[in-house]
Design a protein around this nucleic acid. Structure first.
Length: 588
RNA sequence: GUCCUUGUAGUUAAAUGGAUAUAACAACUCCGUCCUAAGGAGUAAUUACAGGUUCGAUUCCUGUCGAGGACACCA
């Protein structure tokens, strides 16, 4: 067999050679069970909470003892005996606990080999093939031109970007998409506001942020007058029609001007957050095809007419009724989303389409997917909606309708203000202070979003939630920087990492290192970055304990192994943080 | 009213049906530097309530109470 040696093939080759240890143990349990004539398709294997109960543990004996009619403990003992007979070399010891768990203890050689593997694969450590080649399009952020980029967009962006990176690590071919509402009543309000100051527009030279601020004010003005004055309401509706029809003239010019500066401004935020989109989809481009789909399926009887609108009766399927085309003949978001699924597919013939939005539209997505299952059944099967929770301030709800909008930049700036003075305290060179403070601020924010389960709301107290110690992004960065700094120092003394050890004793940090690939896989299977975030904290905590109790750079033979562990931790932290969308500074 | 989500230490969170429910923050004790103390060691503190299924329930089911969201032309 010949193996092509370009980098990519190499990674794949590794993945085939090194089956993950948990998979291997599961297979081995399954085979042993079959030898005692129990067939099962799923073996539960977990890491016990406490290291003293082994590195892996299975409950199969308790679950399946009943099938054979035996006493669980007796069955566990019998099974363990079979397991011990052809124990793989990675396993040192197998024990039956009093309640019927079978516990597996990995061998010292396994841990040393794991460290070796991390050093060998470096930035590719943790990659797997379980989504190999799967073409996946991930839609997230979805900020609307003319409106503010608020903290809801920040959440969607942070989560979507991280999920994209996770599935990329699992072998998927990922494309990032941003779907933007550049049409509709809210836009018309903003354009009306701009029209009022058309002779006093912001100057060309101003930066994107200030121009965007002007748009925010224009929108607020339009929204206020829309509600207060019947005549202005009519004017705004007129503007809306003009934008929809795309007819030329002054309105069109102002609209395009505003749309342009708004999109430029968003780019500066994406850059700051570390996202680069492959595709931008705009509502204005989707509207026509959406209308066609609706009228076609109205004829086919999927939709019905009611009070001048075209609706889908969801009640037949235990869902709600939704309007797909309003009585003015304009397609609603529902219809546009249908069109979008098709347009996306035409751009990138995806196997999977993920859509990350706030969970306030979960119910609505159920209806949409039902409708899609009739119109584009194949696309519906491939579409997964991921609803994230809302970012809430202790004072109440955060939403663009309440008027109390918190922009992403405001929040980042608030965090930055608290981080910046720490740069002086830690005596960093003048020239890198801004840059490090920026990385630390983004990390604090992103981590506090990613550490918890995606669907749940986050109560966000700027003072308390964004902490810089303990369970935080900066803690992870700090641990990584510290580890790297030790390695640098050792290098100057000609001491280098090497995964060789004579010691029999197994430390807590070794028991964490090899788990990284498993965590990536699980996070990818469930589209859940928080598994990774929590793992990285546990890893860091173990490393910091190790650091506090072991002098890493010493004169003993073990120095090279301690350095190897340190290096492995820094590699995992850098890979893991990268996947969370967090950059590690060189110093902090 | 109907449907969906949710309720875990003082606070914010974690826990593929498993072992003594795990962390961080805040509180209280310690470690003052030697490789980065944005660190480490320790103490105290939690599954809303009532039933059920199970060898075993924070997790599954039913009910009660509390919170959030969605329920026709916004997205």
């Amino acid at each position: 067999m010949t193996i092509q040696t370009n980098g990519y093939e190499n990674i794949r080759f590794f993945c085939i050679l090194f089956t993950m240890i948990d998979e291997k143990i599961k297979k081995y349990i399954k085979e042993t069970l079959m030898s005692v004539t129990v067939y099962i398709d799923k073996v539960d294997l977990e890491h016990p909470m406490d290291f003293k109960n082994g590195d892996y543990s299975t409950n199969v004996a308790m679950v399946y003892a009943k099938k054979t009619g035996e006493n669980p403990i007796e069955f566990a003992k019998k099974l363990a005996k079979g397991l011990i007979e052809h124990k793989p070399k990675e396993i040192e010891k197998i024990e039956v606990a009093g309640n019927g768990f079978i516990n597996f203890y990995l061998s010292k050689d396994f841990f040393i080999d794991s460290v070796k593997e991390v050093l060998k694969k470096e930035e590719n450590y943790g990659r797997n093939n379980f989504l190999k080649g799967q073409k996946t399009i991930v839609e997230y952020t979805d900020a609307n031109p003319f409106k503010e980029f608020h903290i809801g967009h920040l959440m969607s962006n942070t989560i979507g970007e991280s999920i994209s990176r996770i599935i990329d690590f699992c072998g998927a071919k990922v494309r990032r998409a941003n779907y933007q509402g550049d049409i509709g009543a809210h836009i018309a309000k903003a354009v009306w506001g701009i029209y009022q100051s058309k002779n006093n527009l912001p100057k060309e030279g101003l930066d994107a942020k200030d121009k965007a601020k002007f748009l925010g004010m224009a929108y607020a003005l339009g929204a206020k007058n829309y509600d207060a004055d019947e005549n202005i309401k009519k004017e705004i509706e007129e503007i809306n029609k003009k934008i929809y029809s795309g007819e030329g003239g002054e309105i069109k010019k102002l609209y395009e001007w505003g749309r342009g500066i708004s999109l430029d401004y968003f780019e500066t935020i994406y850059k700051r957050l570390g996202t680069k989109f492959d595709y931008y989809f705009f509502e204005s481009k989707i509207a026509e095809s959406a209308k066609k789909i609706v009228s076609e399926y109205l004829k086919k009887g999927l939709f019905e007419e009611s009070e001048g609108a075209i609706i889908f009766k969801g009640e037949k399927y235990g869902l709600h009724t939704r309007v797909f085309q309003n009585s003015k003949g304009l397609p609603t978001y529902e219809a546009k989303e249908l069109g979008l699924s098709k347009v996306k597919y035409e751009k990138y013939s995806y196997d999977k389409s993920l859509i990350v939005t706030g969970n306030d539209i979960n119910d609505y997505f159920d209806v949409l997917l039902k409708v899609m299952s009739f119109i584009f059944p194949k696309l519906a099967e491939r579409t997964v909606h991921i609803g994230h929770g809302m970012l809430k301030l202790p004072t109440g709800k955060m939403g663009s309708r309440t008027g109390e909008v918190i922009t992403a930049e405001f929040l980042i700036d608030q965090v930055f203000k608290r981080v910046r003075p720490k740069m002086e305290e830690s005596g960093l060179p003048e020239e890198i202070r801004e840059e490090v403070a920026e990385k630390v601020s983004i990390s604090a924010l992103k981590y506090s979003i990613l550490k918890q389960k995606t669907g749940k709301d986050i109560i966000f107290d700027i003072d308390k939630s964004v902490s810089f110690d303990g369970d935080s992004g900066p803690y992870l960065q700090y641990t990584c920087v510290r580890a790297k700094s030790v390695i640098e120092k050792a290098k100057k003394q000609d001491k280098n990492p090497r995964a060789v050890s004579e010691r029999k004793e197994i430390t807590g940090i070794e028991k964490m290192i090899y788990r990284f690939p498993e965590i990536i896989k699980r996070a990818g299977e469930e589209y859940s970055p928080h598994y990774l975030a929590i793992y990285l904290i546990e890893l860091s905590s173990e490393f910091n304990t190790y650091y506090a109790t072991n002098k890493i750079i010493g004169d003993s033979k073990e120095t090279q192994y301690r350095l190897a562990i340190t290096k492995a931790v820094s590699i995992i932290l850098e890979n893991g943080l990268g996947i969370l969308g967090i950059k590690v500074p060189n110093r902090m």
